[in-house]
């Protein structure tokens, strides 16, 4: 079971307590939304899961394996891929190359194979290409394979980030504000796409500010405020939760 489990995660940066005792799970087949006001620590959660930050206390485990002290590329190899809030594509590479890089941890051809062009290397290269083109097609980017990432429109770059993450063949994908900067039509399409990703058997954890997107597709929602989990539950419950309303809108005047 590819369950991602955070238990009592705390992260401190010097004197700043970024996260305090955060615990939740992303189960098989789940679409979990992680919401909260700006600075609540949502991206920090992603960075902890993917191994960019170390926890001060608590444990992240995946498939029952603790992820602590694993380097990011190892965590990715276990099947947890992510996208970035500020797009971090390889700007001077083409869309296809961006996606091909993501196959790195699933392939093994080395220097000698490359220099000698061994049959195994050629076969592998063909497979990488094939799978990468599939990932591009899945995100509707087939026509942009040869385009430089930096020349692509913003919405396409967002999609390319997801295609790149999918090409790592993840079992769980973390989407960091996938709808940021998208127009309503693009957001709707994104929701549809996220549904399709989920149908492929990929578990999804997403940070998102667009409530229409979050409430529309997430089956489970976790709310963070100032690094503390203030609520967790189904979308309908979250919408009625007074603590959540308070965190977003402030106290009622009385």
């Amino acid at each position: 079971m590819a369950t991602l489990e955070l238990s009592e995660i705390s992260v401190r940066f010097g004197g700043l307590q970024a996260l305090t005792d955060v615990s939740f799970r992303v189960r098989e087949g789940d679409i979990v939304g992680l919401i909260g006001p700006n600075g609540a620590g949502k991206t920090t959660v992603f960075n902890v899961i993917t191994g960019v930050y170390q926890t001060s206390a608590g444990q992240v485990s995946y498939d029952g394996k603790p992820l602590r002290s694993l380097r990011p590329h190892k965590i990715l190899a276990l099947g947890v891929a992510r996208t970035f809030q500020n797009i971090r594509l390889f700007q001077n590479m083409t869309a296809l190359e961006n996606v091909m890089v993501a196959q790195h941890c699933r392939t093994r051809a080395g220097v000698l194979g490359a220099i000698l062009r061994s049959p195994a290397q050629k076969r592998e290269e063909a497979v990488i290409r094939e799978k990468s083109l599939q990932a591009l097609d899945f995100m509707g980017l087939g026509a942009f394979a040869g385009e430089l990432a930096s020349n692509m429109a913003y919405g396409l770059q967002r999609r390319l980030e997801i295609a790149r993450a999918l090409a790592t063949e993840p079992k769980t994908i973390l989407l960091d504000e996938p709808a940021a900067g998208l127009n309503p039509a693009e957001s709707r399409e994104l929701m549809h796409t996220i549904g399709r990703i989920s149908e492929r058997g990929v578990n999804i954890l997403m940070v998102e500010h667009d409530m229409k997107v979050v409430m529309g597709i997430c089956r489970h929602i976790v709310v963070l405020d100032h690094g503390v989990m203030i609520a967790e539950g189904k979308p309908e419950e979250i919408q009625r939760d007074p603590r959540v309303i308070e965190a977003y809108l402030g106290n009622e005047l009385n």
């Binding site: 380097r71 390889f90 699933r106 490359a114 220099i115 290397q121 290269e125 990488i128």
Partner: peptide, 29 residues
């Protein structure tokens, strides 16, 4: 030339473009 085309060459370029992203995309930087 052949290295340039290969999986290793792409990993080199990914590191050049954005080291953190490369690491997070599975390249042992």
């Amino acid at each position: 030339y052949r290295l340039n085309y290969s999986r290793i060459g792409r990993a080199f370029e990914a590191v050049r473009e954005d080291q953190t992203a490369a690491e997070l995309m599975g390249v042992n930087t």
